[in-house]
């Protein structure tokens, strides 16, 4: 469903601040696969997300969605295929517009926007049904401005908005990081539920190792712009935090050893 081919990105090339954010990334996601991505700050996780969404263009490499080359598509065109939830709960919704208007905008994602009413009676029913699945009582507040909702409610709405049109790819960018533990847990379980329900091909960045282990069918660890660890299926289910940290040290330590060997 998603294929990244030899992706490399360098920031501030030719200056002392030069940074290789992504280094020859090779990644393929099958349809319905739910991949969690972990890695320390500056590992290139966010850059990877931005490359897929089209907010950033790679120096070299290709991006295929559903077999279609999209690397030259501008962000707005690519988002026809991609649903995205940001870390900031304020980022995914328009605060001065109502819940139903926000949902209507998300509903138009994979359709051409026309000069017809965005919120119709029929759509209201549809939106109400979808909102009911969140169990937050938002279905009774269709006319409330989104700015009045709490951070958790807004993030739940963002999640719904980016999934209910069943996009080819769902990108989750630390989408629970800005919430308190109980809200984060709510969003985490909602995420699990919708991804399963719609069978979405998902890439989720997180700093929470437990979350990375609990959710999804595959786990990727990134460091210094490279994918250094990729595990799925049975093997992932058995993985524990300790083992993960150990793995990280082993891989990085070994490479450090290699470097030393080369230098000496």
């Amino acid at each position: 469903m998603l294929k990244l081919n030899h992706i490399s990105v360098t920031f501030n090339e030719g200056t002392p601040d030069e940074k290789r954010a992504l280094n020859d990334i090779q990644l393929e996601l099958n349809k319905g696969e739910f991949v969690t991505v972990i890695g320390s700050n500056g590992a290139g996780k966010s850059t990877l997300m931005n490359i897929i969404s089209g907010a950033l263009l790679p120096d070299v490499g290709d991006v295929f969605i559903g077999g279609k080359q999209v690397v030259h598509f501008p962000e707005y065109k690519r988002s026809t295929y991609i649903g995205r939830v940001f870390q900031d709960p304020m980022a995914g919704t328009a605060p001065s517009m109502t819940i139903e208007e926000n949902l209507s905008m998300a509903y138009s994602r994979d359709k051409k926007r026309k000069l017809r009413l965005g919120v119709t009676k029929q759509r209201k029913e549809l939106f109400r049904d979808y909102l009911t699945t969140l169990n937050l009582g938002l279905e009774d507040r269709l006319n409330a401005k989104v700015g009045l909702l709490s951070g958790g409610e807004r993030q739940a709405l963002s999640l719904l908005m980016s999934t209910f049109t069943e996009p080819n790819i769902l990108l989750l960018d630390e989408h629970t990081a800005a919430l308190d533990p109980s809200r984060a847990e709510l969003i985490t379980s909602l995420t699990d539920k919708v991804v399963r329900e719609f069978g979405l091909t998902t890439l989720m960045v997180t700093h929470n190792m437990q979350q990375a282990l609990d959710l999804g069918s595959r786990l990727i660890m990134m460091d210094k712009g490279q994918i250094i660890f990729d595990v799925n299926g049975e093997e992932k289910q058995k993985l524990a935090i300790e083992a993960l940290l150990h793995e990280f040290r082993r891989i990085r330590g070994m490479q450090f050893g290699d470097d030393r060997a080369v230098l000496s």
Partner: peptide, 26 residues
């Protein structure tokens, strides 16, 4: 106009530009 699909996207530009771009509006 401001209640049509196009109009909603137009209003979202003044409200949250990043969001409406991620919802495939030019």
């Amino acid at each position: 106009y401001l209640k049509t699909e196009i109009g909603l996207a137009l209003r979202a530009i003044g409200d949250n530009k990043k969001m409406i771009r991620s919802l495939s509006a030019n």
